[in-house]
Amino acid sequence: MNRDRETQRTLEVNDAPGTASLVDQLDRVVLLVLFDGRTIVGILRSYDQYGSVFLDQCVERKTHNTFYCDVAVGFLMVRAENIVLIGELKEPTPSNMARIGLGALKEMQAAEQVTTTRATEFDSGFWD
């Protein structure tokens, strides 16, 4: 009984900001995936109850397969409705991708035929 009450209190404290505790990510490097598919990397400075964020030293991370190019975009406020997810990064640069220039990246993107959107399917055996 006592333990239950303690668990309950812990849950309430963790939920206090309204947004599933982004407080752990404050002043850390985060990667935002936006609804239009763009990815933004920056330092999380602030957030509100809807999940809008202020990001410092932002770059837009343009990617093509395992190549990326960071374009500096400065200090950004991103409105909550555009944010799909916020991932925490340990390093601002990806370990598994090669950095190239913006021109080279755009050439690569232009060279590859744009494929149509992938329809996802339920995998019925997933949990087996």
Binding site: L31, E81, L85, G87, P94, S95, F126
Partner: peptide, 24 residues
């Protein structure tokens, strides 16, 4: 999503969720 390879913790906005599947 090669750019998510280094991400281990993430925050997902509820309004962007379509399905959640879990063990029965």
């Amino acid at each position: 999503y090669p750019y998510l390879a280094d991400v281990s913790d993430m925050f997902i906005r509820g309004s962007m969720v379509r399905f959640i599947s879990m063990k029965k």
